[in-house]
Design a protein around this nucleic acid. Structure first.
Lengths: 253, 253
DNA sequence: CTTGACCTTGACGTTGCGTCAAGGTTTATA
DNA sequence: TATAAACCTTGACGCAACGTCAAGGTCAAG
């Protein structure tokens, strides 16, 4: 039985790129190479790939796997013991993080509204302590490496469907604003439509809708430069003002 | 109060490089830049850095932190809820990994000596499932055939003490070889001592010792390039050959 | 003989910085 | 005041484990 990269890849559930990478780092070489330069794998390589994937499944890094499989003296038990220590350390850090997050959440829930000073107090103390210890930095850096990829945190804890709708709404608001800027009247029909969209969007964040609050938010859009900058950047100069006027007209109605 | 990169870095416990990186990705810009091009930070930046580090400590990635601090629409609570979910998921996976590792270790400790077949059973099942989804019976059969003879993972089940001794022995062998290379006679006293060490070491792997088998292994050290490379790398060029000769002399005696 | 699926080798992107390297600036000390 | 030490700058490479084009060669099928 001989396999090309794709055949072996499909068989084992890894990509062709992965196999070429394993070849590159000398972790798994093809049994031979065809005249055309194709990598061809035999049963031996299938076996070795299985072992590689077995250890990878346990979270062992490729270098260690290589040593494990190549060094005839390598003690798998010791490697696993060491690996377990790493996993335990990781979990410990995770638990610490979780504690922190939960505590912060609890403070938010309880409306504790701690001041920034208070909020960062414990954190600052921790930083100082870390600085005193020589390995503080190292530990933090390790943590940085472990940091969860939170690039999808934009989903904001909504269900998928909810998020999709929120996303659609905010995009439509921006688009409508872009189109309406300088052409439409904020107090006109299009302005009203935009304000309505904005209201819908709002309901996903506020438990209760009120015209007063809506109007208050609209005012903030022009008063707080962070909001202003956001809308002006997304939809063009004057977008925040337009939106504020549209909502004002809508809310007064 | 104004700070240069190092001053602010020391204050907050981050490196200058980190601050320059944060500048680069527009996460934290200096308040102004001196004529000489030095970055200078003010109190506002200190506050922002605190917030950045606060969220970083929670494991949030820098892009998300940026959005969090820059976008007025960002809901910190929702973000944290979402983040907590990710942390929980990660911990769950860690626990699974730990379970796997612990089980494998337990098998080693208990001397259960599970067959490779069994060892890879769970793994195999997973692969088979994946293959079935993709290709159905045909692939499963092929895979099954390959899987059955996936039998060469050598996990040596020793106790901790045993391993320590094995480790000590192998290190002493390497050291002795390094020292003896080119100076001592493989058939001499030192060669004999090394061969003896090697024999001791062997007993931890082989249930029954025999001179023939020992000699056979020694031959393999020069015949199998993996072994040769290992010894020559660890103890110097010619180490495998020296060891082979020493064992040969020892075994013939 | 032409698709289309598959193969190859680069080479860049990802994350969050660490770590030189080469060269300019500021500060402390002799 | 000269000079060394400490600090600053901008590149640019490296890290883990691949994903993802891009440009071009190969192979089995219609």
């Amino acid at each position: 039985m001989e396999y090309t990269v794709k055949q072996l890849g499909d068989l084992a559930g890894v990509s062709g790129r992965t196999l070429r990478y394993y070849d590159q780092i000398d972790l798994l070489k093809p049994a031979w190479v065809s005249e055309a330069g194709y990598r061809l794998y035999g049963p031996e390589e299938v076996k070795r790939l299985q072992q590689i994937l077995f250890y990878r499944e346990l979270g062992v890094d490729l270098q260690t796997i290589k040593e494990l499989l190549d060094s005839p003296h390598f003690n798998a038990k010791q490697a696993l013991l060491q690996h377990r220590e790493q996993l335990l350390a990781k979990r410990k850090q995770l638990d610490l993080l979780l504690q922190n997050v939960e505590q912060t959440l609890a403070e938010l829930e309880g409306g504790t509204r701690m001041s920034d000073k208070e909020r960062f107090k414990g954190f600052k103390e921790k930083l100082i302590k870390e600085n005193e210890e020589k390995y503080g930095k190292e530990a933090r850096q390790r943590w940085g490496d472990e940091a969860v990829d939170a690039s999808n945190a934009k989903l904001m804890g909504l269900t998928e469907e909810e998020y999709a709708e929120v996303d659609r709404l905010s995009k439509e608001i921006i688009q409508s604003l872009t189109a309406a800027l300088g052409k439409e009247d904020p107090a006109g029909a299009e302005g009203r439509r935009i304000a309505e969209l904005h209201r819908k969007w709002l309901t996903y964040f506020w438990p209760h809708y009120s015209k007063e609050a809506h109007l208050g938010l609209a005012e903030m859009y022009v008063a707080d430069e962070r909001f202003t900058a956001y809308y002006d950047e997304q939809a063009g100069q004057g977008a925040a003002q337009f939106l504020r006027d549209a909502i004002a007209a809508y809310a007064q109605n």
